[in-house]
Computed example of a mutant assay.
Amino acid sequence: MTSRHQHVADDLRRLITSGALAVGERLAPETRLAARYHVSTPTLRDALELLRTEGLIEKFQGRGNFVRRPPQRLAYPGAAVDGDDGLQVIVSSADITATGDLAARLRTPSDAPITQYVCLSHRDDSPQGLAHLYIPHAVTRATSDVRNPPVSASPWADDIVRSLTTATGEPVANSTDLVTARFPTGAEAQSLRIATRTPVLSIERTITADDGQVLAYVLLVLPGDRAEVAFVTPIDKKTDKKIDKKAETR
């Protein structure tokens, strides 16, 4: 049996998808909507939260709920660079020490010095993705200059990985991606400007050298309402064996 908040969400969704409620239009105040649908305010808010998780509306504190412009799809790992489709990447960096979890992922001793890069990508004023990149100082063999972090054209920090590993002579042999659907942390939700109940795709990348040394660990967080993952597996036609895997979102 369909719940009352789902009935409300279904009708509002119909109005939005049909164009009866236009992009950018402000919805009626919540108390008025609740009275229109003969439901309680908490039930109405459950319906609105459902539409927010679907990316159909967004709420601005003190202003109300508005019909959201359909989000553009991301392209991982082939996202357009800054200046192509309006995607801009802001990079910051800091020297930190490895915590227990990070130390395990990077296979370094606890409290070992590492460099953290944070890449936050935007299109217009809308955050699109968040990437945290961690590289041991044993790989870079030098501390990063946090006052002048490298400019990144990639929202996934791929170019930073390439430049640093090339400079240190450590060739990348393997990149393993672990993809998980989950709810964002409070800090992730704040950075991406999404509700804490909006699902995200978490992609954990571990980049290793030929000898098994971990060169970098990357945590990518993508809003679930604008990203989807497709696994592409090239096949060796001569042996009919799978030879590689690559993940993409679009």
Rank of each mutant, 00 (worst) to 15 (best):
D240G: 15
L50P: 02
H7C: 05
L87P: 02
D11N: 08
R14Q: 14
G64C: 06
V67S: 06
T43L: 04
Q213W: 09
Y37H: 04
S144Y: 00
S154R: 09
F60G: 05
N65V: 09
R36D: 06
D95Y: 03
S92F: 01
V39L: 04
S191Y: 06
R68A: 01
K59T: 15
A247N: 13
A181K: 12
K246G: 15
E58S: 10
T233Y: 11
A80E: 14
A173H: 04
G169Y: 01
Q190K: 12
Q6I: 10
P234M: 05
A98N: 09
A247L: 15
T198W: 05
A153E: 14
A187Y: 09
S126N: 11
T53Q: 07
Y76D: 14
L48N: 06
L27R: 09
A80F: 11
L21K: 06
T185G: 08
G62M: 06
L56R: 01
D240N: 15
T233H: 13
D159W: 09
P42Q: 07
D85K: 12
T2V: 13
V200Y: 02
A131Q: 13
S110K: 15
P234F: 09
S126M: 08
T115F: 00
H122V: 13
F183D: 07
S154C: 10
F66V: 04
G62F: 04
I57A: 00
N65G: 11
W156H: 15
A75P: 11
F183P: 07
I243Y: 06
I57V: 09
I235Y: 10
C119I: 08
V67C: 01
D236K: 15
S152M: 03
G19W: 07
S163V: 08
S154L: 08
R107T: 13
H5G: 02
T97N: 07
G55K: 00
T166F: 04
L220C: 09
L27K: 02
D210Y: 11
N65M: 07
D46Q: 10
P70S: 04
